[in-house]
Computed example of a mutant assay.
Amino acid sequence: MSEGSNQSQTKTPPMSPESKPKGQRQKDVDDSGRFGRKQSDKKIEATQIRTVLETFMSKEKTGLNRFYKDENLPEELVMRATTMASELIDLGCTRELAQSLAILNLYDLAILLDDSLSMVTEEEGKRLSALETTLEIVAQVYTLTREDGIGTIDFLNEPDGFADVVDTEIAEIIKDHSYSGWTRIGTELEAKILNELVTDDMKKPLLVLVITDGDIEGERDGVIASVIGKCIKDQQTKFPNHAAHAVAFQFAKVGNDIGAENLLEAIDNHKVIGDYVDRLPVGIEAISDLALKWEVLAKMLLGGIVRSFDKADTPAAQQTAEIEAPDKAARKRVSKAAQRAKQPPSAAA
């Protein structure tokens, strides 16, 4: 275990408040050329988004009543989710996916990053570039759910993490970090994320995104499943009427290491925790493909939350998936995107 893993983590914003004038964060998103923008005349109504959120809570995640009593969603949350959906459409997202992504307003986001040496030594630095691009896009989207962006970002081998991260801070975080150490995903997931953020008085459920470029090193097999299983059991024991819906887990890989792919596939199909986790079936590099960007993003952020996005790994799984997502068409596109991203360029053309 890395030094300081069992100590209370210090989450500090990477930039001082003085460097961010009031209102600058929203401007950062609006002015960004990362997505490209297009205006849409398809107005999203607050009543539509409220229906999406309430249907999700009543059909899939009844345990969220622990946080939103009797599905009584605050008007402020609904309006922010509505604004978010409209913004995403303007940025080029489809209407269906934008409405689904509005579900993220119900969750805080914590990210755990692999910072082993292979992140910089393999593939001529392309892994770090892909990681930076992906995190910038995720931060842009999450800034639409909360002004402060991503709740926390932690590295496996760094004692301290970063809190309230927006897209303009990502490059500095990624480039200034020193990459070395073990890939102890289960150990650090428990120490840096679950022990710190999953508490009896947490205000919102938590989405945990883990990104790795390889198989585990420095911890025994089974630690990841054990840690996630313990988290789920603890929530069921403490809040029996709310099942295990306080925490959702999503895993993704960067790079071409077969060990990472096998690890995440095993976690996703685990007989005990498989129903509580999801994996992105392609590398995060696929998010840079303009034809796949929104589908990959939706799968990466909603797969651990929305059942039909979880099942949307292959056409076969998609065809047998129970239709419970807010938008059936979006699920189909995610499945097709995953398959296209696995094909060589000539086959996908």
Rank of each mutant, 00 (worst) to 15 (best):
Q9R: 12
P14V: 04
S16I: 01
P17N: 00
P17C: 06
K20Q: 05
G23C: 07
R25T: 09
K27W: 07
D31F: 11
S32M: 09
G33I: 10
R34V: 14
F35C: 13
G36C: 14
G36R: 11
Q39V: 09
D41S: 11
T47A: 12
Q48K: 10
I49A: 07
R50H: 10
V52N: 01
E54A: 12
T55I: 06
S58K: 15
K59I: 13
R66K: 15
K69Q: 13
E71S: 15
N72W: 05
P74L: 12
E75N: 09
L77D: 10
V78G: 02
A81G: 04
E87Q: 07
I89S: 07
L101A: 08
A102Q: 08
Y107R: 05
D108I: 00
I111H: 01
L112P: 05
D115H: 04
M119F: 07
T121E: 15
E123P: 03
G125Q: 04
R127E: 04
L128P: 00
T133L: 03
L135F: 01
V141Q: 02
Y142L: 10
L144G: 07
R146G: 03
D148N: 12
D148G: 04
G149D: 00
T152L: 02
D154T: 03
A163P: 01
V166R: 10
I174D: 02
E188N: 14
L189T: 05
A191N: 14
D201I: 11
L206S: 09
L207Y: 06
T212S: 14
T212H: 03
T212M: 02
E217V: 12
S226H: 01
S226K: 08
K233C: 03
K238T: 14
F239Y: 15
H242L: 13
F249T: 02
F249H: 05
V254N: 03
D257Y: 13
D257T: 12
L263C: 10
L264S: 11
I267A: 06
G274W: 01
G274E: 00
D275V: 12
Y276R: 10
Y276D: 09
Y276F: 13
R279W: 04
R279E: 12
L280I: 04
A291E: 13
V296Q: 07
K299S: 09
L301E: 00
V306Q: 05
D310S: 10
D313E: 12
T314C: 08
P315G: 08
T320I: 12
A321E: 07
A321M: 06
E324N: 15
R331I: 14
R331C: 14
R340W: 04
A341R: 06
K342G: 10
A347D: 15
